[in-house]
């Protein structure tokens, strides 16, 4: 506890004194204090990457001030942060226009742009695209230890993908990528006993719940989970809902 206390630092946001832990993401700290800072590539569960450039803020440290993305800026004692300066907003608007051209089919991008009064982009759009290459899917896939996804290529052709743009042998179809995807471009569809993630060329059979008979999770995923938790696979034979019910029934008072 004592150590943690030493790590608490104070900094100012628009003049208001705030606390954070030394080295934590400035964006996290800002949001915890109720400040609104837009971002599409940040998620508490994984390391920050700094791809979307929307969380720009102005940070003053000592006498020097500069614009920086807040997601990968470490909180330090004595920082002075300004959020929506004219300059920040000017660049954020252009970044939004770029994103709007890069992924016009992404609703999250259109909504965010609309909040800044941007309906149209002056740039050349890629009409069908809905992915902004934020890399959250890759980072979550790494965090869960599967590593089925990665970036391929570089520059304009950089894109999140499975190796060789084919079904990945490593992918267990857990769907964590879809959970964190800010634009909804990774979609998990469970139907007819199969889980499909079209973006990753994945189609795997679902295990049917022993109780209700509904397909609820890919077999490979369950096997992996059982292995990691050192459980018999039989413990995972029921879907979470039925498992919950059975658990509740067992402990019901007479």
């Amino acid at each position: 506890m004592a150590d943690e206390k030493c790590n608490v630092v104070e900094f100012k946001v628009q003049g208001q004194i705030c606390q954070g832990t030394l080295g934590e993401s400035l964006l996290s700290a800002l949001r915890r204090h109720g400040f609104e800072v837009p971002s599409l590539c940040f998620h508490e569960a994984v390391s920050s990457y700094g791809a979307c450039r929307l969380c720009l803020v102005e940070v003053k440290k000592g006498r020097r001030s500069k614009l920086t993305t807040s997601c990968n800026y470490p909180v330090q004692e004595g920082l002075e942060v300004q959020l929506d300066t004219d300059e920040v907003v000017r660049h954020r608007r252009i970044v939004l226009q770029l994103l709007l051209a890069a992924a016009p089919a992404a609703k999250a991008v259109r909504d965010l742009a609309a909040r800044y009064g941007i309906e149209e982009t002056p740039f050349v759009p890629r009409p069908e695209e809905d992915c902004i290459q934020c890399g959250l899917c890759i980072r979550i896939c790494e965090a869960v230890g599967v590593n089925a996804l990665g970036f391929a290529g570089r520059g304009v052709s950089k894109h999140a993908t499975t190796p060789y743009e084919e079904t990945s042998a490593a992918c267990v179809g857990c769907g964590a990528c879809a959970d964190v995807c800010p634009t909804g471009c990774v979609k998990v569809v469970d139907a007819d006993g199969f889980r499909t993630i079209e973006r990753w060329h994945l189609k795997v059979p679902l295990t049917l719940c022993k109780t209700c008979g509904r397909g609820f999770a890919p077999e490979v995923h369950l096997t992996r989970m059982a292995g990691q938790a050192k459980l018999e696979i039989a413990h995972l034979a029921n879907c979470p809902k039925c498992r919950g019910r059975a658990f509740a029934a067992e402990f019901r008072l007479p």
Partner: peptide, 21 residues
Amino acid sequence: LADESCGKCVSCREGLAQLCA
């Protein structure tokens, strides 16, 4: 530069693509 950019930052990747266009 559009080809040599690592492609991580939207401002660089998409910005250069649009400057090129």
